[in-house]
């Protein structure tokens, strides 16, 4: 299916934003680790963590957007999202990564690596999805 319009960057990616984990612990967005997502998903009754591998990165409809194709979970479901260049994804074992890390750092003061094909991102699915 065609990707939807680019998702605007939400405020919680700004450095210093306070994030509440599933066990109630508060952390700054820049301090989050892979384990925080894994442990929070383990506690969650609704959400299940999945790995999404970046398969393709193409230009989006507008010059500041990209279309990222992911292969999600064991079933390798193909999912396309169109996001702004600076939109950060959390890569397993690596942390925040975006297609334009310089721009992410400039806009949100969030340190980022370059998101590349083959990177495995944290994603979520609903438990008991029918």
């Amino acid at each position: 299916s065609p990707p939807s319009s680019p998702v605007a960057l939400p405020p919680f990616f700004m450095r210093g934003s306070i994030i509440q984990l599933a066990d109630g612990e508060l952390k700054r967005v820049e301090d989050l680790k892979t384990e925080d997502f894994i442990q929070s998903a383990e506690i969650s009754s609704e959400l299940k963590i999945d790995s999404s591998t970046v398969e393709r990165i193409d230009n989006g409809q507008s010059p500041n957007a990209v279309v990222i194709q992911f292969s999600v979970g064991e079933l390798k479901a193909q999912v396309c999202v169109e996001v702004l260049l600076e939109y950060p994804f959390f890569v397993f074992g690596q942390g925040w990564s975006s297609c334009c890390p310089d721009r992410t750092t400039q806009l949100f003061e969030l340190s980022c690596a370059k998101l590349c094909v083959g990177d495995v991102c944290v994603s979520l699915t609903l438990r008991g999805l029918r």
Partner: peptide
């Protein structure tokens, strides 16, 4: 009187794009 400013707290799952695959079958 100055009201105390509350700091927004965001849930952890809001940071993760929801990539639940659509079940086509």
């Amino acid at each position: 009187n100055v009201e105390p400013r509350s700091v927004p707290v965001f849930p952890w799952h809001s940071l993760v794009p929801f990539l639940a695959p659509t079940q086509s079958d």
